[in-house]
């Protein structure tokens, strides 16, 4: 009996097992690192390193979280981030003036590409009612191809010094700008989901579209906005990435959708829609990226990381099942 009540305590809320996992990750990598003569994983500098990596994915994850809660999915985010980075870099190179105003114009151009694609994707889903999986699968391929055609498959570089501000700049010489942007995006997501009509509509549509429609929820408008938001944020992430790498490459972001969807789902958002929180997504991101960084720390390469990520996703789904079981035995 005590085991059951113990399990209940651990699994009663999504954040409990995730926080425990996160702490265990830090402890494990600290120990494993020390054994290899490389202590110091559990430190402020590593945390900032993790957050810096996480920030780009996190910006996309906030959008993806909205999409998945609304009952949809977006597979095109990696390709959108690539084409936005490319367009942004191209505009900078063509303007050929390294001043903040012109750089801002190139950033805006990149985000605009994201918003335009988001509107097209959203319209196809909301008005023509094509399943999101198919629309975004098509755009994943289409945009990747376009990015490669525009650049002839080669990265656009070098980029002017000012362009690198978003990706490499630091706020008050300590916190990377990308983390600051992520925090702002996160706050925006928090407000939207919890304190706006749009957020409530997103939950309602994901929970039960028919009931939502019959309650007067503007289904089409909401869906459209959700995909525009997700694409726009992915574009922003793509620009930060280009700025960090110092080049607009058509090859970036391949497979990013997987890491992002994984983080969101690990954070407790249900793929069938209607359920999920922004805090869960943040924890999901932390768990995934601490793992990645930690594996790098102890010298496990990409292939090993892919295997581990797969295992983490499976574990998260098992935990979700256990929670559901415990809930029903409660009634």
């Amino acid at each position: 009996m005590w085991l059951k009540s113990w399990l209940k305590l651990i699994f009663s809320r999504t954040w409990v097992p995730l926080t425990i996992t996160l702490i265990l990750e830090f402890i494990a990598f600290e120990i494993l690192g020390s054994l290899q003569g490389q202590p110091g994983f559990a430190s402020l500098s590593t945390t900032i390193l993790i957050l810096n990596q996480l920030s780009i994915f996190g910006i996309m994850a906030v959008g993806m979280n909205l999409v998945i809660i609304s009952g949809g999915i977006d597979l095109s985010i990696g390709s959108i981030s690539a084409i936005s980075g490319v367009i942004s870099a191209l505009v900078t190179v063509h303007l050929h003036i390294d001043s903040p105003i012109y750089i801002l114009i190139s950033y805006i151009a990149g985000v605009a590409i994201g918003l335009i694609t988001g509107s097209i994707i959203g319209s196809l889903i909301a008005f023509i009612e094509i399943p999101p999986f198919i629309v975004t699968l098509a755009f994943m391929s289409l945009l990747r191809g376009l990015a490669n055609i525009i650049t002839a498959g080669k990265p656009i570089s070098p980029l002017p010094e000012n362009f690198l501000f978003l990706g490499r700049g630091q706020f008050l010489n300590t916190i990377p700008i990308s983390i600051v942007i992520f925090i702002l995006v996160f706050l925006w997501g928090y407000l939207v989901l919890n304190y706006t009509r749009l957020g409530r509509h997103i939950y309602a549509i994901g929970g039960n579209e028919v009931s939502a429609k019959l309650s007067g929820v503007p289904i089409r408008k909401t869906k459209l906005l959700v995909y525009i938001a997700c694409s726009g944020l992915s574009a922003l992430a793509g620009i930060i990435l280009a700025s960090r790498m110092g080049s607009g490459s058509p090859k970036v972001g391949i497979g990013d959708e997987l890491a992002v969807i994984a983080s969101v789902v690990i954070g407790g958002t249900s793929l069938s829609g209607g359920k999920g929180t922004i805090w869960g997504t943040l924890l999901g991101l932390c768990v995934v990226f601490t793992l990645n960084t930690g594996l790098n720390w102890i010298g496990v390469e990409t292939f090993g990381q892919q295997v581990t990520l797969g295992l983490v996703i499976l574990t998260a789904i098992l935990v979700d099942k256990i929670q559901a079981k415990l809930k029903t035995s409660n009634e």
Partner: peptide, 26 residues
């Protein structure tokens, strides 16, 4: 009729969220 995954509170106001909106926020 209902969004079963939402609370009693959220279901009650779903058809008229405007009435509990102040500025942009609920």
């Amino acid at each position: 009729g209902l969004v079963l995954s939402m609370t009693v509170r959220e279901n009650t106001t779903l058809a008229n969220l405007k009435r509990v909106t102040k500025w942009l926020f609920l």
